[in-house]
Nucleic acid binder design. Structure first.
Lengths: 201, 201
DNA sequence: CATTCTATTGACACCGATTCAATAAGGGCA
DNA sequence: TGCCCTTATTGAATCGGTGTCAATAGAATG
């Protein structure tokens, strides 16, 4: 049954409260879509008044942005590439972590993607950052040199590859029949060089 | 200045009225996003009462679905492939029409995509139909035979290719610098065979 | 234990979605 | 031509969720 509805008000430090609300927000994304995540629902679940949410986040949009940002940070952290190793191998490790992240956090990830895709520019920008964290490194040059030459066409293609990867993972997770996890990873990994090969010029 | 605000109520046949409201809805998508397309706004623009919208479409969701369906039908009609010709050439013609459609109807198309992506299952399904209209033919076998063998992995890859194509076109249209329309078309067209090549098995 | 700072509340104003009984356009019939 | 009758259309009332703000009460400090 859990606790009874709050009797005495509890006073937390702003950092703790803010963090609690954001965590709860991200957790609730597994159950509802972003715009079903109303102020009412969150206040109810958190056991606080609606007014408190408006105290910490000026309005619903700001709150949504903060939640999406936290979810994106989760994703970025979980798919961080290893510090060392072959550039292509590091990318593969990252992609594998991404696939596994989506598989385990499917519902929440879906809400994140849909919310960002359907939302305002700010939301899309936040999600773009997460994508870039995954893909930008193919342009970053290190001791071994750059993997892909940085041209407008190459940027475009890599961005397209990221969109394709997202679609592949989401679709596969919804119905994995006929394709194994390893085959999926192979498709994604092999796609990037295959696509780079079609860049004109 | 246009006409003054309606003085006498005009009575249309249900078909005419319904059609008028849907057309207006699609047209307004070039200016606002789907969820900024409120009942108030539409009624105002159409010069009718809010109640009438509820008479024709039970609620806002249903109205939005109908608008998206009409916009998707537009897209499908405009990108219909020629009846005859080489399968691959027919696909290229379709893709070219798709690119040109997005270029000219950019704002409205963005609203369509965002609305479908961020919306409920019904909305996504409608948009999926439009995508399928563009891509399914690569599996259809005709006199020349099938272009791509129909397997779960192939279905997945073609779906990914469609998502990539959408991302490429939208991104390119937002900032075409550095890549010409012909190069874009070349990238998209060459991508499909390149991706089919990475299918395992 | 009193004081003070500020995290937290609850009541209220407001806007858009939704309902429904009342209204009137306009085609058909005498 | 003028009445009638169907039904397209309206407008007022309701409801649920957002956003505002002065009032309330933890808890740390002296």
């Amino acid at each position: 049954m859990g606790c009874v509805t709050a009797t005495t008000r509890v006073r937390l430090s702003p950092e703790e409260r803010r963090s609690q609300l954001l965590d709860l927000g991200v957790r609730l994304l597994a159950t509802r879509s972003l715009d079903e995540l109303s102020i009412d629902v969150l206040a109810e679940e958190a056991g606080i008044s609606r007014g408190l949410l408006y105290h910490y986040f000026g309005n619903k949009h700001v709150f949504h942005e903060a939640v999406v940002r936290r979810a994106a940070d989760d994703l970025i952290a979980q798919t961080a590439p290893p510090a060392s190793g072959e550039p292509l191998e590091r990318l593969l490790t990252s992609v594998t972590a991404y696939v596994d992240y989506v598989v385990t956090n499917y519902e929440g990830y879906l809400s994140l993607v849909k919310g960002a895709a359907g939302g305002n520019d700010t939301l899309r920008e936040i999600y773009d950052e997460a994508r870039s964290a995954l893909t930008d490194r193919v342009f970053r040059e290190d001791a071994q040199g750059t993997i892909i030459t940085d041209t407008p066409a190459a940027r475009l293609v890599v961005r397209g590859w990221a969109a394709m990867t997202e679609e592949l993972v989401i679709t596969w997770r919804a119905d994995p029949s006929g394709v194994s996890r390893e085959e999926l990873l192979e498709i994604i990994a092999a796609s990037l060089p295959a696509l780079v090969g079609v860049i004109p010029g």
